[in-house]
Design a binder for these strands. Sequence first.
DNA 1: TTTAATTTGATCAAAATTAATCAAAAACGA
DNA 2: TCGTTTTTGATTAATTTTGATCAAATTAAA
Lengths: 249, 249
Amino acid sequence: MNFQKRKQKILEQLDRTGEVDIKKLAAELDISEITARRDLNQLANDGLLYRTHGGAMKVDPLAKPKDFANKAAQNADVKDHICRKAAEHINDGDIIFMDCGSTVFRLCQFIKNKKIKVITNSLPVIYELQNCSVSINIIGGEFNNERQATHGKIANEHIARYHAGKAFLGVDGVSARGLFANSELEAEITSMYINQSAYTYVLCDDSKVGKETYLKFAYIDQIEAIITNADDQKLACFKDTALTILQVG
Amino acid sequence: MNFQKRKQKILEQLDRTGEVDIKKLAAELDISEITARRDLNQLANDGLLYRTHGGAMKVDPLAKPKDFANKAAQNADVKDHICRKAAEHINDGDIIFMDCGSTVFRLCQFIKNKKIKVITNSLPVIYELQNCSVSINIIGGEFNNERQATHGKIANEHIARYHAGKAFLGVDGVSARGLFANSELEAEITSMYINQSAYTYVLCDDSKVGKETYLKFAYIDQIEAIITNADDQKLACFKDTALTILQVG
DNA sequence: TTTAATTTGATCAAAATTAATCAAAAACGA
DNA sequence: TCGTTTTTGATTAATTTTGATCAAATTAAA
């Protein structure tokens, strides 16, 4: 039984019972306690569970904050899968951009215990990451109530002052031809994030893959990776690109 | 049973019954009393409950937003009087700066129906003014959790990009010699507000008047008006200045 | 106010859990 | 096949958690 398989079983049990115990886990999976500990530590590091003395617990299932939460709650399962995978790519010490989409918002719950710096224009993200080990940098500018985020010239300039190792972005559509958005404000700020980050992850569910909507604002080779639940068929269009595709169940 | 699990159970019971008792808790959770005490102390330290002799009580849900709310609630009457007066000086079409003090925060409730633009570095102010006729501009920069606001170089630069007709600011002390603050970060951003506004109101209760604390960051003639509940005697020191004094009951 | 009872914090010791180090085993690529 | 890397397990030392004891502080009662 390898790590990936054990990981599956651990998360499964965690989902079922809410907690796991090192001793029992070691017995059930027929591994030593030290290995069980190592597994749990690694999963905790990825934000997939919360480590306790002698075991682990399910990660905080509280996602209540606002009417924003309504939109964020749509398709929550799929979004959580995508974000869980995204969280695996975030390590202590990272500086990351997070945009103001509802998918990216759900990434918060998985990174609360990481020692990272988050730069964002999303008010719900700020709210969610208060009082945890994440240090926050707020993109200033005119606040758009509908999107619960800042946008505009000053916001763009603000982003231009920073550089981050990774950016986690949502889009309204993505195809081999590029990235698409439903609004100019959104497109501009997303472009800025891409420009100012070394590695860009696009988070999107299968409904966005292959969709070419309103406004194209970036070429596909400007980003490095896509994290999605889309199937191989939908993703086939990217086979001639250099894109890293991270597929989740 | 580890701490995390006990924590869950304690908070659960607290939510149900409103209070817990050390002896009962120790018996129910099958732990020693000293451990129960330690648990309660830790949770109290995190602000999740209110410690009593022999047990704990549910924390007031109103106070949960954070200690900021507590501070804002201190002296609320006086602060409200001051802010009501301040609001009289704000008209539709105004563009105003609001800083991140607890006094200025209470100004929000009096300006919700005004058609104005507010530029602020205070997260509580932003929350409070969402979904009303006020349009908001957020000062970006590094977020300081204790002050619930952005500060620092980028925040200062951001303010420098804007001009406003009026600024409403809190201070830690004010005398004929100038304005005083308890922290450099605070002082810097307040200075920027003063520089970038045509007319500056300082809001302060009588305890701040005549107080010269830590750091002087501005001369008294850099501001135009003080709104305070201080009496004539305390305000006498300003009689040789050009200051407009707005006294409230 | 004084006294008695209770609660508390501090200190120490025991138990459990963990991290660190190293060696063995397995997987991998050439 | 061999050498390298990765994974795993055993041992040990360090850390964390817990409980017991006792003096100090707090509360309640007289």
